[in-house]
Nucleic acid binder design. Structure first.
Length: 303
DNA sequence: AACCCGTGGTG
DNA sequence: TCACCAAGGGT
């Protein structure tokens, strides 16, 4: 039997609800964990790191094929660092937010130059890398190296919001009590398994839109369920405008550049978006981001 | 703190 | 159908 949950920290005085979560969640995970190419004993820290970059705001199903091809092409950080950043952007394909590809390339360069080509295991070294924030640093330190960290992603935050706090969704930003709760729940033994188990539960059962409470291992311990699944009552959560935004235009332009092996004429970009003011603004922002370079009167992905 | 950054699946 | 949202990070 696992020892009872640590009671060192008791935010909110919710010890009872907290300490009962571990065993059912871990048992559920043992039976329902997906086999993913960045999991398992064969998963190198680099594989974990690449997967975490790709999974930032992008669903698992879309990541898997790109991930496989990526690791085939660049099996180590040094391999990626040796390639032109534009090739990383091209290989990123349609995962979205292509600045992530640029940041992953920059992180690989930093790892090659400053860490002997090995993904660092310390949170402080990880979060210093481009494109690595609190979540990604915690995830790599935990999943790749087994370190004890609270891994707070959108899934984990939602599970704790419901099971412990009794609200349908967490707040916009991570609060101090929320972080302390998450940290208090991380077990001393196999903390990475706990982190990934809660995340998986949020991804497969305690989902945002249509939670499968009938299949949930902690339904009988869930504060939100006990309260009758009350509807979200917090501040309105901002939507993500799309049609007509610069993001849409940038996406159009990047799609053209990805699909061309060499340079692209200005005329070809005009076909992607007719309205000149917004097109030029978007193109300028792509150049400023380093996603596009001007080559004479033509355009291309960077070297 | 609020806003920006892609893309596509889904209920 | 269309609003919602997905293993966030940077500014």
């Amino acid at each position: 039997m696992r020892p009872p949950c640590s009671l060192r920290h008791t935010p909110g005085g919710m010890i009872g609800a907290m300490s009962e979560l571990h065993d059912p969640v871990l048992r559920w995970y043992a039976d329902h964990a997906r086999e993913l190419p960045w999991r398992g004993p064969g998963a190198s820290p680099w594989r974990v790191m690449v997967s975490e970059f790709m999974l930032q705001q992008t669903p698992v199903a879309r990541v898997v094929p790109v991930f496989e091809a990526w690791l085939e092409t660049w099996p180590t950080p040094a391999d990626l660092a040796a390639a032109p950043s534009g090739e990383a952007v091209r290989a990123w394909g349609r995962l979205g937010y292509p600045r992530r590809a640029l940041r992953l390339h920059a992180a690989a360069t930093a790892i090659t130059e400053q860490h002997g080509g090995e993904v660092p295991d310390a949170y402080a070294d990880l979060i210093a890398l481009p494109g690595v924030g609190d979540y990604t640093a915690s995830a790599i330190a935990s999943f790749a190296f087994g370190h004890r960290h609270a891994v707070l992603d959108t899934n984990v935050r939602r599970v704790f919001a419901r099971a412990v706090s009794g609200t349908e969704f967490p707040g916009t930003a991570v609060t101090r009590p929320e972080r302390e709760l998450a940290e208090s729940l991380v077990p001393d033994e196999e903390p990475a398994t706990w982190a990934i188990a809660v995340m998986e539960l949020g991804a497969l059962v305690c989902t945002a839109a249509a939670p499968r409470c009938g299949s949930c291992p902690v339904q009988d311990r869930c504060a939100w369920w006990a309260a009758g699944r009350p509807a979200y009552d917090g501040p309105p959560r901002r939507g993500q405008a799309w049609a007509g935004t610069d993001r849409q235009v940038r996406g159009r332009l990047m799609a053209v550049l990805r699909d061309e092996p060499g340079t692209v004429s200005a005329g070809r970009l005009e076909q992607a978006w007719a309205e000149p003011v917004q097109r030029e603004r978007a193109l300028a922002s792509l150049v400023a981001d380093g996603l596009v370079v001007r080559v004479g009167d033509r355009f291309a992905l960077p070297d």
